[in-house]
């Protein structure tokens, strides 16, 4: 758990980038930080690996103040994807990915194995890409490398600053899906900065909405949509999206099976594919399971958790989020 306690950041030129911020980023969850440009998202994130230091207040990781920690050691234990990728152009993909393992002095074989494993994870064939240089990769491939480079040292915390911002919508969707799937297996504490509400709704466990150095609202995607704290949050989420959820709540689950989870090994509560999304939300809320098993013709055809349901509620006929 990462905890901010009354953190204020004033830059030497007088800009107050963060104003008395207190918040908690839960362990093993993906928290998205969202807000308009210049609201302090990057600054907030850089506080966690001490690239910026608070003017006031403290930050704790698992209740230990980071104030006293050695910054080099701390950074090696936290994955970091910077805004604008930042791959080292003079190093091969393999050397880029292996950078933190090298700093941590892993043995050579272990480093190489790690590189292969990670490249495969994001669909880059190690045999082809390991010895290439960043400029020989497309933008999307570079961003993938940027993401896995942050995972290389097997950190518990990963900071990602608009990692997909430079991508076309299709690669972007694809990487979002990949990240979501990845998170299901690696289970890190991920802090994900974005200014794209679709992205946040799609991948985050919880969302922090910021404006002008302050937190406007914190909540799950669903809480934000159901109960936006104020006009700013409502506008930021988009009135259209909020209404959409209301009307589409009437639609039936069977129309959205393609959006749902195919396989789920854990427990799930049964629900008929005839039910409305609204009903599914209610049933899931009252259930102590995380997933619903959707039944059609006495067979389970898909699984859905609250995120899947939300996706269904927000999707247009065309299959894209509003």
């Amino acid at each position: 758990m990462i905890r901010f306690e009354n953190v204020t950041k004033r830059f030497p030129d007088g800009t107050e980038a963060l104003k008395d911020i207190s918040l908690v980023l839960p362990t093993h969850e993906l928290t998205a930080i969202i807000g308009p440009s210049g609201c302090g998202k990057t600054t907030l994130m850089k506080m966690i690996n001490k690239l910026e230091k608070p003017t006031d207040g403290s930050i704790y990781i698992d209740e230990k103040p980071i104030n006293g920690m050695d910054e080099v050691q701390l950074r090696r234990s936290i994955g970091y994807v910077i805004q604008r990728i930042g791959l080292f152009p003079h190093m091969t993909i393999s050397d880029n990915v292996a950078l933190v393992p090298k700093l941590l002095e892993w043995p050579k074989a272990k480093k190489e194995e790690r590189v292969r494993e990670l490249l495969q994870l994001v669909g880059l064939d190690p045999e082809i890409y390991m010895d290439r240089y960043p400029l020989e990769l497309s933008g999307g491939q570079q961003q993938r490398v940027g993401v896995v480079r942050a995972l290389a040292g097997d950190p518990n915390i990963v900071l990602m600053d608009e990692p997909f911002s430079a991508l076309d919508p299709i690669s972007r969707e694809q990487l979002q899906d990949e990240l979501r799937n990845l998170q299901q297996t690696i289970n890190k504490t991920i802090v994900f900065v974005t200014h794209d509400m679709d992205e946040a709704l799609k991948i985050a466990d919880s969302i922090i909405v910021m404006r002008d150095g302050q937190v406007e609202q914190t909540g799950t995607p669903q809480q934000l949509i159901d109960d936006p704290a104020n006009e700013f949050v409502r506008n930021f989420i988009g009135v259209e999206r909020i209404n959409q959820k209301r009307t589409f709540g009437e639609k039936r689950l069977m129309e959205f099976l393609n959006l749902f989870t195919r396989d789920w090994a854990g427990d799930a509560e049964n629900i008929s594919a005839d039910s409305t999304i609204e009903a599914a939300f209610t049933q899931l809320d009252n259930s102590n399971q995380d997933y619903l098993a959707i039944i059609e013709d006495e067979k389970v055809v898909a699984y859905a958790n609250d995120r899947d349901l939300l996706k269904a509620a927000l999707v247009k006929e065309s299959g894209v989020l509003v």
Binding site: K46, N49, L51, V72, Q73, L74, R75, R76, S77, Y80, I82, Q83, R84, I85, G86, L87, F88, P89, L99, V100, L103, R149, L159
Partner: peptide, 15 residues
């Protein structure tokens, strides 16, 4: 040298 390259290095824990 591109500032973001250096920041990436710092952020990853290079001295």
């Amino acid at each position: 040298v591109d500032g973001s390259t250096i920041e990436a290095g710092r952020g990853m824990g290079m001295t």
